[in-house]
């Protein structure tokens, strides 16, 4: 009983932690609903895009490609490239979650997004399945509901509010990162370097869409693995 109460508490904490994600997802999901309507796809398909794919950038890209008449094969391949960064994020999360979550891994894996990954990675202490699922479920529902509302109701929010809300996810990423920057200059170095590499790769524009970020993460994390080497021993001792 006591255990159940504690777990419920964690679920609610997860839902609370999802508020910035919900705020950030809503305008994007509304925009996706609106755009999918103007692209001429049905509301069922628009809903299924968000409910089954659950990956913002690739969904917008798909609409674009549908509009210019691209083949399904091309759209699916581009989706793979755009979303492959989640492979790295899942790998990083897999080290952090506990063994007893196994049964829930199909759901937790489905809910891995840039945003849920960021919150979960920097969650202090143990990462319970209740917290994880509370965060992910709430974020997921806001994405799916936002899509449907956008499709049905169109521009219910003034454009200026939607534009301004575009800052929400960046602000959340920043608020997650800053306390870590304060703790360690290595973190500052790694984060700035990967931002710099990503900017450079975007500028050069040589790689397929989505791979600038993947290459930035791989290169700089590889460098980070050398930096973390000494700290590793201490971390192991604590556990």
């Amino acid at each position: 009983m006591q255990n159940g109460v504690k777990n419920n508490g964690d679920f609610i904490l997860g839902v609370k932690a999802s508020i910035p994600l919900v705020i950030g997802y809503l305008p994007i999901a509304l925009a996706f609903g609106i755009l999918s309507k103007t692209t001429g796809i049905s509301i069922i398909d628009s809903f299924l895009f968000s409910a089954l794919v659950f990956a913002g950038a690739s969904q917008f890209m798909a609409l674009n490609l549908i509009l210019i008449g691209a083949g399904f094969g091309e759209i699916i391949l581009t989706t793979l490239l755009v979303n492959f960064r989640h492979f790295l994020m899942s790998a990083s999360l897999a080290v952090k979650i506990e063994g007893n979550m196994k049964r829930w891994i199909p759901f937790i894996a489905f809910g891995v997004t840039d945003e849920s990954f960021s919150v979960l990675s920097f969650r202090e202490g143990k990462l319970t399945k209740e917290f994880t699922l509370g965060l992910q479920l709430s974020a997921y529902l806001s994405w799916v509901l936002g899509t449907v509302i956008g499709y049905l109701a169109g521009g219910i929010l003034p454009e200026i509010i939607i534009d301004g809300m575009g800052i929400a996810l960046y602000a959340m990423f920043t608020a997650i990162l800053v306390p870590e920057l304060k703790k360690s200059s290595k973190v500052l170095f790694l984060a700035l370097l990967s931002g710099g590499v990503n900017t450079l790769l975007n500028y050069l524009n040589l790689l397929p869409k989505g791979w600038n970020m993947i290459v930035s993460i791989i290169l700089v994390s590889f460098l980070g693995s050398y930096i973390y080497e000494e700290k590793e021993v201490k971390l192991c001792e604590q556990q």
């Binding site: 994020m89 990083s92 840039d114 990162l177 975007n202 970020m213 460098l223 980070g224 693995s225 973390y228």
Partner: peptide, 29 residues
């Protein structure tokens, strides 16, 4: 493939860097 398995130190350091590095690349540019 990764859960519940002892990983090489270098790989673990790599995976532990990913969150910081990903945030940098998600924010900038």
């Amino acid at each position: 493939f990764i859960s519940d398995r002892e990983l090489p130190k270098r790989l673990k350091g790599f995976l532990k860097s990913v969150p910081y590095v990903a945030l940098g690349a998600l924010i900038i540019p």
